[in-house]
Amino acid sequence: MFSAEEVLKMAVRIEENGEKYYRRAMKLQKNPSLRDILRDLAEDESRHAQWFNEMRGRLSAEEGEDRWVREVTGDLLQSMIGDQTFSLKEVDPAQLDSLEKILETALEFEKDSILFYDMLTGFMDEGESARALQEIIAEEKLHVEILEARLKALSLQPVDTSS
């Protein structure tokens, strides 16, 4: 069973892991364009984590539209989440053997985030928090598009067979 506090901690952790991953991957890249993209993704993840932390702070006030978070408890959420880890474990991009695997792992992080946040929207009333969460989901979907485009560009590059 998950409490509202635990759900928000999970959301923060997902975002913090994404930020760390992007920052580590950024340091491994020589391509300035790719470094810029990874930096931007890391900064977005940092902002998302901050938003979830602020929501956790409001939770203790027990007022207003954030009461939905209190209701995100019990067997329903447990059954929705099941055994899914939702990018809660850290992955070191330096341990991956190709840029393609680095981007594929990042893509899975983003898709996990979207899935988790989509589940949360079902518990929310319309209001400022719901709109803000929809904006975060839209940004995560943009991250997916960016990463998919990079992966597609990689697959179109000719393979160097001169070695």
Rank of each mutant, 00 (worst) to 15 (best):
D83T: 07
M1Y: 07
I37W: 05
Q157G: 02
W68E: 03
P32M: 06
E54K: 08
S155D: 09
A11F: 01
R150N: 14
T121V: 11
E65D: 07
L107C: 07
E126P: 13
K141T: 10
F2Y: 11
H48W: 00
A149F: 12
R23E: 13
V159C: 12
E15N: 06
E90W: 10
R35N: 09
P158F: 09
G127H: 08
R150D: 13
Y117H: 13
I146L: 12
L38C: 05
M10V: 05
K9D: 09
I102T: 08
E62R: 12
F123Y: 15
L147V: 14
L115C: 10
K152W: 12
R150G: 10
L76Y: 03
L28I: 14
K27A: 15
D83C: 06
L115K: 10
I137P: 02
L38N: 04
D66M: 11
Q84M: 10
L88T: 05
D75S: 08
A130N: 13
I114K: 08
F123D: 10
G18E: 00
L59D: 03
P32N: 06
R39T: 06
Q29T: 09
K30A: 11
G64R: 00
T73S: 06
Y22R: 02
Q157P: 02
Q95T: 11
D75K: 10
D92E: 07
F2K: 06
L77C: 05
V159K: 12
Q134R: 15
K27S: 15
E90T: 08
E71I: 01
E65A: 07
R23A: 06
I81T: 03
M124H: 12
G74K: 01
A25Y: 01
T105E: 10
A153S: 08
K89W: 14
E140W: 00
E108W: 09
L115F: 07
Q29I: 09
D66C: 11
L41F: 03
T161L: 15
I114H: 04
M1E: 12
F2E: 02
G127N: 04
L120P: 00
G74Y: 05
K111G: 04
A138F: 08
S163M: 13
R23L: 13
E139D: 13
D125Y: 08
M55D: 07
G74H: 06
D83E: 10
Q78A: 11
Y22A: 04
K30C: 10
F109G: 00
D36L: 13
L154M: 07
S98Y: 02
I137K: 03
D40Q: 13
K9Q: 14
V7M: 05
A49N: 01
E15M: 02
Y117E: 11
R58D: 09
G122N: 08
M55Q: 13
E6H: 02
